[in-house]
Amino acid sequence: MKHLLHRPAEDAGRIDVVYLWVNGADPVWLRKRHRAYTAWTRQNGEELAAFGNVAGRYRDNSELLFNLRALELFFPDHGHVYIVTDGQTPAWLRPSSQVTLVDHRQLLPCASPEVFDSGHIESYLHHIPGLSERFIYLNDDVFFGQQVNPAWWFEDRIKVFLEPASTAHPEALHPGETALVNASIESGRWLTERYPHYRHLPQVYSHTPRAMRKSLMHELEHLAQDWFAQVRSTVFRSWRIPPIVPDLAPRWMVQMGYAEQQVLNPLYINTGDAQAGREFDTLLQNFGNLPFFCINDTCDEAAGDDPRLLRIAQTLEKLLPDPSSFEWAGDQRMAA
C-alpha cells in the first residue's frame, strides 16, 4: 500500500479517482468522535447542520469495497486511486502500487487534526501530492453503473449535473435545511456579488461522481479564500458554513465556461425511505445501463443489523460478485 509520501509522478493524461472513507464502527474512532462532539457543542451551541452527526453519515456498509469493484468493471483505465481516511485501513484492502491511503493528518494542517465534516476534508482534495490534473471525486456511496467514457466527462467542458426539480428555498441559510440547500443559497449570494450577469438556478446538484480539474480548484480557492477558511474551521458540519465542493465549485465552473450543466435524474436510493425496496429493484433491473447511482444511508441511528442496511451489501453482491484487484482473496484476508 502506498502512503502519501510515496506517490506517483504527475501524468497529464491520467484521470485519478479520489474517495473519502471512514469506518464509523471503529471503537477508537467512535471515542474520538464522541469526545470531539462534546467539546464542539460547548462552543457551537445550535450550529450542527441537519443530519450532521447521525450514525448513517459515518457508517460503513461495505460501499467502498463494491465501489472499487464497479470502478474496475466500468472504468478499467482509471488512474491512481486515493482513499482519504482518518488513520484507518479497510480490512479487505490489499496493498497495491495503484492505491494510496491519505491520512487526514498528512493532508489537513496540524491545527485541525480531528475533523468529522466531509465538506472540510474535501476542500483539501486538490492538495493531494501527485494527484493528476483531471480527477474524479466520489463519495463511497456513489457508484459508476455503466462503462465510463473519459472524453464525455472531461473533453470540451466538464460535465456537472443539476437535479430536475426544485422546491421553494428560503432566501437565507436555515438550520432546518440540508447542507445542499444551504450551499445553493450561499453559492447564489457569492456568485451574484462577483458576476453581475450571473443567474442563479434553484436546483441543487445531484449526488454523482464529480469530475474536477486540480488547477480550477486552486483558482477557486484563491477567489473564495474567506469561504474556504470558514469551511476549514469546522469540526462537525455547521448549517452556517455550507460546503464548497458540492455546489459552489460546479456553479462557478459553469459561470466561467469551464463546465457545462445538464439536468439529470439519476437513480438515488434513500435506504430509510418507504420506496427503497422498489428503487433497489430498479437498480437490479437496470444495472449496466445507468451512468451512475447513489445508495444513501438515511437510516440514521438504526442498528447495524437493520434489514434496510443489510440490503445494501446484499444487493451490491448480486450486482458485483467478482472481487477486484484491490481486495485480498478470502484466505489472504484472514491471514492479513
Results as ranks from 00 to 15, higher is better:
residue 107 L to G: 11
residue 84 V to F: 00
residue 105 R to G: 14
residue 120 H to L: 06
residue 104 H to S: 09
residue 76 P to G: 02
residue 104 H to I: 02
residue 107 L to H: 09
residue 93 L to W: 02
residue 113 P to F: 10
residue 96 S to W: 10
residue 75 F to C: 00
residue 91 A to F: 02
residue 91 A to Q: 03
residue 100 T to I: 08
residue 125 L to S: 05
residue 149 N to T: 10
residue 126 H to F: 14
residue 95 P to I: 06
residue 124 Y to W: 15
residue 147 Q to E: 14
residue 79 G to W: 02
residue 118 S to E: 13
residue 143 F to V: 04
residue 140 D to V: 15
residue 117 D to S: 09
residue 133 E to K: 06
residue 129 P to V: 09
residue 116 F to V: 07
residue 142 V to I: 15
residue 107 L to R: 12
residue 97 S to D: 13
residue 108 L to W: 08
residue 141 D to R: 11
residue 150 P to E: 12
residue 126 H to D: 10
residue 105 R to Y: 00
residue 144 F to H: 03
residue 108 L to Q: 07
residue 120 H to K: 07
residue 84 V to H: 06
residue 106 Q to A: 13
residue 148 V to Q: 12
residue 145 G to E: 03
residue 127 H to R: 15
residue 141 D to T: 11
residue 128 I to N: 01
residue 76 P to A: 14
residue 104 H to Y: 13
residue 138 L to H: 15
residue 145 G to N: 08
residue 89 T to I: 11
residue 96 S to T: 13
residue 114 E to L: 13
residue 105 R to V: 09
residue 136 I to T: 14
residue 123 S to Y: 04
residue 103 D to R: 07
residue 144 F to I: 06
residue 91 A to K: 13
residue 98 Q to C: 07
residue 125 L to F: 15
residue 120 H to C: 13
residue 75 F to P: 00
residue 116 F to C: 03
residue 90 P to M: 05
residue 115 V to S: 03
residue 105 R to M: 00
residue 131 L to V: 01
residue 111 A to T: 14
residue 142 V to G: 06
residue 139 N to W: 11
residue 105 R to L: 08
residue 100 T to K: 09
residue 133 E to N: 14
residue 122 E to K: 14
residue 140 D to R: 11
residue 90 P to C: 08
residue 115 V to P: 06
residue 120 H to W: 01
residue 124 Y to K: 05
residue 131 L to Y: 05
residue 83 I to Q: 00
residue 85 T to I: 02
residue 141 D to E: 05
residue 93 L to I: 03
residue 81 V to D: 04
residue 143 F to N: 08
residue 131 L to S: 08
residue 85 T to N: 07
residue 126 H to L: 10
residue 120 H to T: 13
residue 94 R to H: 13
residue 108 L to H: 01
residue 100 T to L: 11
residue 146 Q to S: 14
residue 117 D to V: 02
residue 122 E to Q: 13
residue 131 L to A: 10
residue 143 F to K: 05
residue 101 L to E: 02
residue 149 N to R: 15
residue 91 A to E: 06
residue 83 I to A: 11
